[in-house]
Computed example of a mutant assay.
Amino acid sequence: MADDDLQAIRARRMAEMRGASGGGELPAGLPAGMTAAAGGAGGGQNAAEEAEKKSQMEEMRRTMLFQILDNQARERLARIKIVKGDKARAVEDLLIRMAQSGQIRSKVNETTLIGLLEQINEANQKETKIVYNRRRDDDSEDEDWGL
């Protein structure tokens, strides 16, 4: 291979690595395979980007739920979130998946939301089982009293 070809391959690879690491220049002291985040420099910037990305995702989630639910259903879901946050999150996830797959054609009202909650409760409901351990005749306490 010619030196020009190797230079072009190296330049393309460096551009790919910069794109994957967030677009910044690689510091001169780092080896070719190591990104700036892995070297310890710029770790705060990645955390800020992650926090920004997470807040954008939550905002998208809220807007989708605003479009999916009517006012009464939204209020009920907010009350459920106060008491059982994990159950409310599961219902929100289910509603978003249903909307993305096209199963929801109009806004979800409160009665439909109650039906979804009942379905989730039935699916997650654990059956309680009671076991009675009865004494046997040989374990009778009558013998202890001498009767």
Rank of each mutant, 00 (worst) to 15 (best):
L6D: 10
Q7E: 14
A8D: 15
A8M: 11
R10E: 13
R10I: 09
M14K: 04
A15S: 12
M17A: 12
G19V: 02
G23L: 09
G23V: 05
G24P: 01
G24K: 02
E25P: 04
E25V: 12
L26P: 08
P27E: 11
P27W: 01
T35I: 02
T35W: 01
T35A: 11
A36N: 10
A38P: 05
A38W: 00
A38M: 13
G39F: 08
G39I: 01
Q45E: 07
Q45N: 02
N46L: 07
N46P: 01
E49W: 06
E50A: 13
E52N: 09
K54N: 05
S55A: 12
S55Q: 09
S55D: 04
Q56F: 02
Q56T: 09
E59N: 06
E59I: 10
E59Q: 06
M60N: 10
R61F: 09
R62F: 01
M64F: 12
I68R: 03
I68V: 12
I68D: 04
L69H: 11
L69N: 09
A73V: 02
A73L: 07
R74I: 03
R79L: 14
K81Y: 09
K81M: 06
K84E: 15
K84M: 05
D86P: 00
D86F: 03
A88V: 07
R89L: 04
R89G: 06
A90M: 02
E92G: 06
A99R: 14
Q100D: 04
S101L: 03
I104F: 12
R105K: 14
N109M: 00
N109I: 00
E110H: 09
T111H: 03
I114L: 14
I114N: 10
E118V: 14
Q119C: 00
N121P: 02
E122I: 11
E127D: 10
T128K: 07
I130V: 14
V131M: 08
Y132V: 15
N133G: 14
R134C: 06
R134G: 14
R135G: 10
R136F: 05
D138W: 08
E141T: 07
E141Q: 07
E143F: 15
E143Y: 11
D144M: 11
W145P: 04
L147R: 15
